[in-house]
Amino acid sequence: MRAAVFTALCISLSAGAHVLLSANPLPLGMLAALSAGVFAVAFLLAGRRERGYWSIAALLVPLELAADTVFTTGQHTCYGQSGGPVAGSMRSLGLDLLCSGEFGTPLARMTARGEALAGTAASPWLLLGAHVGVGLVAAAWLRRGEAALAGLLRAAAAVAFRPLLLAVAIVTVAPVRSTGRPGRRSDRTRAARPRPHLLHSVLRRGPPCPAAA
């Protein structure tokens, strides 16, 4: 579950920022393949313990930048510099399967200044700054969500096991015998003192008989 949430956030942020700043859609097949790769990495590094902010950010930001590089390569490979489809030797290698479908076409159409921005020399730095800034904010959001989930699980475990703990405590506590009336404090203190062994024993055995000897 943690790896799935991480993958959904990483891919959606990276793909959305890339489509907005490049004003071009993304190949749907390449997006699905990259999502599977990010999920595998997140699943291997998720672990069982709660992760801190810098641990999440150290994985989220590099994966976002790697996804942006893959998206740029995919756009150039699938659509070309002029936006044409895959043809020639690329189609024979099976890249047309990765280039099937389009993701973010309505979002790309909404960016009216995207074409002018994509052709400027500052566009790579804008992409880098956007990915790093959004990645740090998303890491903080994931950290808060993970802390909230861990607290919720601890509270649920405490509520679920509390009746069992009470039952175990009732069974393990020794029952207190009632004497009918409360005695005096001196009697209770005297009764609580440990007594020596064989206090009420009567020794009736004498020396052995001579015949038996």
Rank of each mutant, 00 (worst) to 15 (best):
C99R: 08
T172I: 11
W54N: 04
P194L: 01
E50I: 12
P182Q: 12
A130L: 06
R177D: 09
T7S: 09
E115T: 13
Y53Q: 00
T72N: 10
L34A: 10
S92P: 01
R184I: 06
V134A: 15
L149C: 05
A46Y: 06
H197Q: 13
G47L: 08
A167W: 02
L128H: 01
G133A: 11
L142Y: 07
G88R: 07
N24L: 06
R185I: 09
S35L: 06
G94F: 04
A140H: 10
A23I: 00
R205F: 14
C10H: 12
A158W: 13
A157L: 11
V202M: 10
S100W: 13
R143T: 15
V171G: 10
P210F: 00
R190F: 09
C78R: 07
F161M: 11
T7W: 00
A213C: 08
M110K: 05
S123H: 12
G135L: 02
A150R: 12
G88N: 05
A147D: 13
F39W: 09
A130N: 01
T69L: 14
L60D: 02
M110E: 05
M90Y: 12
R193T: 12
A33N: 04
T72W: 13
S35A: 14
G88Y: 02
F39R: 04
A33W: 09
A108S: 15
L21P: 02
V70C: 02
L128P: 00
E64G: 12
V132S: 02
G16L: 03
A17Y: 06
M90P: 03
V173W: 12
A156E: 04
L93D: 02
L136C: 07
A192V: 01
E64L: 11
A121R: 11
A40W: 00
I11Q: 13
V41M: 08
L59S: 08
T172H: 09
V86D: 02
A58C: 07
W54R: 05
A108N: 11
G80L: 06
A211S: 12
L165P: 03
F103S: 14
G151L: 04
G206Q: 08
G84E: 13
A40C: 01
V137H: 09
A118H: 05
N24H: 06
R91F: 07
V202D: 14
L45T: 15
M1L: 08
G183W: 08
A191T: 09
S123A: 15
G83Y: 08
R205K: 12
R162G: 09
L152H: 06
G74N: 06
P175N: 02
G119L: 12
M1I: 10
S186H: 14
A57R: 05
G114Q: 01
L164G: 14
A116G: 12
A3D: 14
A3Y: 02
L198K: 15
H200C: 10
V176E: 09
A147T: 09
G119P: 00
F161N: 10
L59M: 10
G74H: 07
S14I: 00
I11R: 06
R185T: 14
L93M: 07
M110G: 12
A32T: 13
P124N: 05
R193Y: 05
S201D: 08
L149N: 08
G135W: 00
L95P: 03
A40H: 01
H76C: 02
G80R: 03
Y79P: 03
V176H: 08
